[in-house]
């Protein structure tokens, strides 16, 4: 059985990755699972300088999901390189670094710095920034700006470049095509859907940031549909994510068109989710007598 999948020039030993922001820098989960078993570890989003993040409350549970407004709190790229990369180097898994910036220049600088470090196998650009005030974040919603920022980062790095798309757009296929044309090697979708919960006693939004990003099983059908649509629109591989809780969920994404999958919110509920999902995928392949995991990608589009 062959579980290998290709994301640009990056070969993952299997299609199960972690979703950025749900897995810390890997260390937090090393006690609970064998990180060597993962196709890739995608770390919490990083910026050139550390970020304090949003005021609390930052999370609120919703039906079959949760809203988060962490505000991209992170330790900054330099601290990540000096303190976290050495730990990750000890594992036989691909390390993909999610990063973002406040300007095209910052994106480019961040990508350049990360590309100079041994032990980083790929970059995932967050152009969604779901927790920013409206009007600020246009990298993921204005095709012209998306093209500009992805193109600029593309020229700066030779690492496999994954662009993580926001679902908070009218036409995600358009955004996918724009990212592909600007040089992305792969696409991650979907990021969280913007939402809000109101405290009816205080008559105010619950979250400190007012809005947050919805994740968990509640968003899965939306995410599967978007993967299905984007698969038809682009030629580059898709990493599917959005409420994957089980192997069956992961397989849905692959059959819709994903080459790999990322497990997010499920890590919070069960720290062993990723490896259990991997085991479940293997069982499915055995039961279905499949030799190549990649043969499932986009199977829903056949005939």
């Amino acid at each position: 059985m062959n579980l290998e999948v290709k994301i640009g020039k990056l070969i993952l030993k299997n299609p199960v990755m972690t979703a950025s922001g749900t897995f810390g820098y890997g260390q937090e989960y090393a006690e609970f699972i064998d990180l060597n078993r993962l196709g890739a570890v995608v770390v919490k989003g990083l910026s050139l300088l550390p970020k304090v993040g949003n005021p609390p409350p930052r999370i609120i549970e919703t039906p079959a999901g949760m809203l988060n407004a962490i505000g991209l709190q992170n330790i900054g790229i330099e601290k990540f390189i000096s303190e976290k990369v050495p730990f990750l180097l000890g594992f036989d898994t691909s390390v993909i670094v999610n990063f973002f910036g406040d300007s095209v220049e910052e994106y480019v600088k961040a990508a350049g710095r990360l590309s100079s470090v041994d032990g980083i196998h790929g970059l995932e650009m967050n152009i969604s920034c779901p927790n920013k005030q409206a009007g600020w974040c246009i990298f993921g919603t204005d095709p012209k700006v998306t093209s500009q920022v992805v193109g600029a980062v593309r020229r700066e790095t030779d690492l496999p470049l994954i662009v993580k798309l926001s679902p908070n757009v009218t036409d995600i296929s358009l955004m996918a095509r724009v990212a592909e044309e600007a040089g992305a090697d792969a696409l991650s979708l979907i990021n969280t859907l913007t939402g809000m919960v109101i405290d009816i006693k205080k008559r105010r939004p619950v979250l400190g940031n007012l809005t947050g990003g919805l994740s968990g099983p509640a968003i899965r059908p939306v995410a599967v549909r978007m993967v299905y649509e984007v698969y038809k629109a682009v030629k580059i591989p898709i990493i599917g994510m959005g409420g994957i809780m089980s192997a069956g969920d992961a397989l849905e994404f692959m059959i819709a068109g994903a080459t790999a999958v990322a497990v997010g919110t499920a890590n919070f509920i069960k720290p062993s989710s990723t490896v259990e999902i991997l085991d479940g995928i293997v069982s499915y392949m055995e039961a279905e007598k499949l030799e190549e995991i990649s043969s499932l990608t986009g199977a829903a589009h056949a005939g």
Partner: peptide
């Protein structure tokens, strides 16, 4: 309120004193 309980999600934070200007954001 917590999501993960193990330090990964950064959802349960509390504000602490004296770090505002330190640039050590996190």
């Amino acid at each position: 309120h917590m999501a993960c309980g193990i330090g990964a999600c950064l959802g349960c934070v509390v504000k602490v004193k004296g770090q505002e200007q330190a640039g050590e954001g996190s």
